[in-house]
Design a protein around this nucleic acid. Structure first.
Lengths: 170, 170
DNA sequence: ATGCTTGCAAACTCTTTGCACACCA
DNA sequence: TGGTGTGCAAAGAGTTTGCAAGCAT
């Protein structure tokens, strides 16, 4: 499976590269064309402002699951006048229209965003607090089959995500 | 399966009862004896102060996944002098020694705690923002088998939890 | 031109911290 | 009694809000 990448990050300030190591990897993001971003915004029913294009680009380009703060910093590298408040408002509307997702985390002190809206799972390293994307269609099929056969009463599932806590090993 | 209960709550202020409806339910909590709580604290290596006993009791008694604020309110009903700061500090130490867990939630504005440290899953209702506990040993076995057969490279899983988003249906 | 978006700053919520006093072991 | 835990209040971090000015359609 060529063209696949692996993303990871640390909860603190620093970003760490994560070595490709598994068969269950994520599509690498190539720098998106402004025109494409503009189109995605329009398709989502949002006005394509300069700020929104920058914020969407930052989301797609940043590794892992950035905070509003980290998105802001990335945006500022290009256009230093964009305010943090705008980043918050924009991320909210992106979530609303499905351009991004919020990532669930048990010990989160702040919200994290995930530009990858496809279904995937998360590995939590309890040592380093790292969150690593994990996708495995076989696993998805397994779980989906399970619920198809013996479904949930009184609950219509739309999507699921497995949170696996553990430790990274070299 | 007698003696089983079902817990649910709303993200806002109000609590709603959730009708028992599924086969995959959670043990109902009976009001714990202070002596037992004291023992659990001691076993966890914590001093059994009045406040800690109250907070542990509140955690066990409150339905769903209470916030620090909700725990505090519950504690105050018994002893109105306990401070919110103490509740925070205490919940932190409880998490540290494994007496409680933090619950992951994508759109959490504040931390939620779960006194049920056994492995279980969560149903998120996207309409009502309700979080419903769900446990199903068959599902657990299925997932565990899957990882036993084709494990994760470079990652040693300790526990997992499935987050199922969807909508409640009557 | 109209109305959605932005920047700014203040306000707000949740959580942490420092310190003197209190209390468990 | 010694050292940990608590209450209080202030500070800190993250997020939201209100409003005038700016910009996309």
């Amino acid at each position: 499976m060529p063209g696949y990448g692996f993303s990871g990050y640390f909860c603190g300030e620093s970003f760490l590269p994560v070595t490709p190591s598994s068969d269950h990897l994520h599509p690498a993001v190539s720098r998106p064309e402004p025109a494409v971003l503009q189109q995605r915004l329009a398709a989502a029913g949002l006005r394509a402002t300069h700020q929104r294009i920058l914020i969407l680009e930052s989301l797609l380009v940043l590794p892992g699951h950035p905070t509003a703060e980290q998105v802001h910093r990335q945006v500022m590298a290009n256009t230093p006048t964009v305010s943090l408040g705008t980043v918050y408002k924009t991320l909210d509307s992106f979530v609303e229209v499905g351009l991004t997702k919020r990532v669930a985390s048990a010990d989160a002190q702040c919200r994290r965003y995930d530009s990858d809206c496809s279904e995937h799972h998360h590995l939590y390293c309890t040592d380093t607090k790292e969150i690593i994307d994990y996708c495995n269609p076989q696993l998805d099929a397994l779980i989906r089959d399970f619920f198809a056969k013996q479904g949930l009463e009184n609950f219509q599932p739309h999507s699921f995500s497995l949170h696996i806590a553990g430790t990274r090993v070299s």
